[in-house]
Amino acid sequence: MIVREPRVPSPYRSRLAASDVSEHVVDVGGSSTRYWIYETPDAEEARVTIVAVHGFRGDHHGLEPVVAHLVGVRVVMPDLPGFGDSSPLTGEHTVAAYARWLTAFVAALGLGDDVVVLGHSFGSIVTSAALADGLRASRLVLVNPIAAPALRGPRGVVTRLAVLYYWAGAALPERAGLAALQSALVTRFTSLAMVKTRDRGLRRWIHDQHDAYFSRFADRRVVLDAFRASVSSDVSSYAARVDVPTLLIAADRDDITALPAQHELRALFPDATLDVIDGVGHLIHYEKPREAAAAVEAFVR
């Protein structure tokens, strides 16, 4: 695991400082799962708890800008097993395995059936699969949901290149393969491909976030497992079996899932609302966290 602390101060740090943050650990599914609890302003009065699941190759830091803009909720945010400070699961890191882990995680913390579950990107697949397979929750929020197979997205060619990249990472000898998967050049290329804002300061901070957290995975096996899981499934496979009110927060410029696919996904859920944020791509949580938080607050209340 490569660990480098961020060098660019967060533009949302003063807002996040208004929350009380505590760090914890629990053993679930063979993983020593590290998680953080954020008590946002007026959280005790609202008594709403959100369990938030980050995307592929990230960790809990990615969703902190959204948390920074929330008021009146309690947020529980783990690092996915094998990423950040959480150790890997026992066995392969499939969508089904992550879904079982999430169900067990919520149970281990005794959060109850009234918890709100939120997933971003790959986390949208994990959370949807968990609810479809029996995780009890009051509501589901999906930010930048993966609405269709990644190879069918607006940049399907880029996704195919990613498949080749991860194939090479698996085929090379251990040290060379790991170095390729942790390449700073590839991380920057990926970041440049996703960022949409023209704000230079915000762009610099986003790139620094990816530099700091994109390679914090336990080993080569974990990241290859998770990549296969991320491109072999999508939320549409689980939507019909999610029986709670669901909010989709999508972007009009998302290169992973085109907006028409988000409308199609909304129709697959028994009870879903689609909120589209303009002028942003797959990084809603970095570029438009205030708008995302406003949509979440209105939905959970």
Rank of each mutant, 00 (worst) to 15 (best):
S236T: 05
V223E: 02
V186T: 13
P41F: 02
P270Q: 08
D79N: 12
R100I: 00
G84V: 14
S14Y: 11
F214C: 08
A68M: 10
T159W: 08
G58S: 14
R57V: 07
R4M: 13
D59V: 06
R198P: 00
L142T: 06
A179E: 15
I2E: 01
Y98N: 09
A148C: 01
F227C: 06
S232W: 00
D199Y: 13
L192K: 14
A250M: 02
A147T: 04
V26D: 05
Y165D: 07
Q209Y: 06
L142A: 05
S32W: 09
E174P: 10
E174D: 15
A162R: 05
D208S: 12
G156N: 07
Q209G: 00
I277F: 02
R228Q: 15
Y12C: 06
P289H: 14
V296K: 06
V300I: 15
Y238M: 04
S230M: 01
D85S: 12
G72R: 00
R301K: 15
S128T: 15
T103C: 07
V115Y: 05
A96F: 09
P88N: 10
A229L: 03
A226I: 07
D271P: 10
L89T: 03
V3Q: 11
L259E: 08
V300E: 03
S10A: 13
V186R: 09
V67C: 00
A18K: 15
T197M: 01
S31V: 02
A107H: 10
D199C: 14
S230E: 02
L224T: 15
T90S: 15
L192Y: 12
V300W: 05
R160H: 13
D255H: 12
V115F: 08
V115I: 08
